[in-house]
Amino acid sequence: MSEPDERPRRRQARGERRVSQLLQAAANVFCAVGYTASSTNAIAREAGVSPGTLYQFFPNKEAIAVELSGQLIKEMEATHGRIFTAETARLPLGRLIDEVTDPFIEFNAANPAFLALIQGPDTPGRVADEHNVLHDSLLEQVTELLAVRVPSLSRAERSLIAEMSFAMFKAGLNLVMQHREDRRDAYARELKGVLYRYLEPYVGVDAVAAP
Rank of each mutant, 00 (worst) to 15 (best):
residue 10 R to F: 04
residue 92 P to E: 01
residue 91 L to E: 00
residue 162 A to K: 15
residue 61 K to Q: 11
residue 168 M to L: 15
residue 83 I to W: 00
residue 165 S to V: 06
residue 93 L to T: 01
residue 76 M to S: 12
residue 131 H to Q: 09
residue 155 R to V: 13
residue 6 E to I: 09
residue 145 L to T: 09
residue 122 D to T: 10
residue 39 S to N: 08
residue 136 D to W: 07
residue 207 A to R: 12
residue 140 E to N: 13
residue 110 A to F: 03
residue 185 D to A: 10
residue 137 S to C: 15
residue 22 L to G: 10
residue 202 Y to W: 15
residue 96 L to R: 00
residue 109 A to I: 00
residue 19 V to C: 06
residue 183 R to A: 11
residue 20 S to G: 10
residue 122 D to Q: 11
residue 149 R to A: 06
residue 54 L to A: 12
residue 28 N to K: 13
residue 163 E to I: 10
residue 183 R to C: 07
residue 63 A to D: 11
residue 16 E to Y: 04
residue 68 L to E: 07
residue 110 A to G: 11
residue 107 F to G: 08
residue 148 V to G: 08
residue 22 L to D: 05
residue 1 M to C: 07
residue 59 P to E: 03
residue 181 E to H: 14
residue 93 L to H: 00
residue 134 L to S: 06
residue 10 R to E: 10
residue 84 F to Y: 11
residue 166 F to Y: 14
residue 74 K to W: 10
residue 147 A to Y: 12
residue 195 L to D: 00
residue 36 T to Q: 10
residue 176 V to F: 05
residue 194 V to Q: 04
residue 150 V to Q: 13
residue 194 V to R: 09
residue 30 F to A: 00
residue 86 A to S: 08
residue 95 R to T: 00
residue 28 N to G: 11
residue 199 L to V: 02
residue 209 A to K: 07
residue 200 E to G: 05
residue 9 R to T: 01
residue 170 K to P: 04
residue 56 Q to S: 09
residue 34 G to W: 01
residue 164 M to W: 09
residue 78 A to M: 14
residue 116 A to I: 01
residue 44 A to R: 14
residue 121 P to M: 03
residue 160 L to R: 15
residue 185 D to M: 03
residue 111 N to Q: 06
residue 59 P to L: 01
residue 110 A to L: 04
residue 131 H to E: 03
residue 104 F to N: 03
residue 156 A to P: 06
residue 31 C to I: 05
residue 64 I to S: 10
residue 90 R to Q: 04
residue 106 E to F: 05
residue 27 A to F: 12
residue 33 V to C: 15
residue 86 A to H: 09
residue 37 A to S: 13
residue 208 V to H: 07
residue 83 I to C: 05
residue 161 I to K: 13
residue 169 F to K: 02
residue 44 A to P: 15
residue 32 A to T: 00
residue 11 R to H: 02
residue 196 Y to P: 02
residue 71 Q to Y: 08
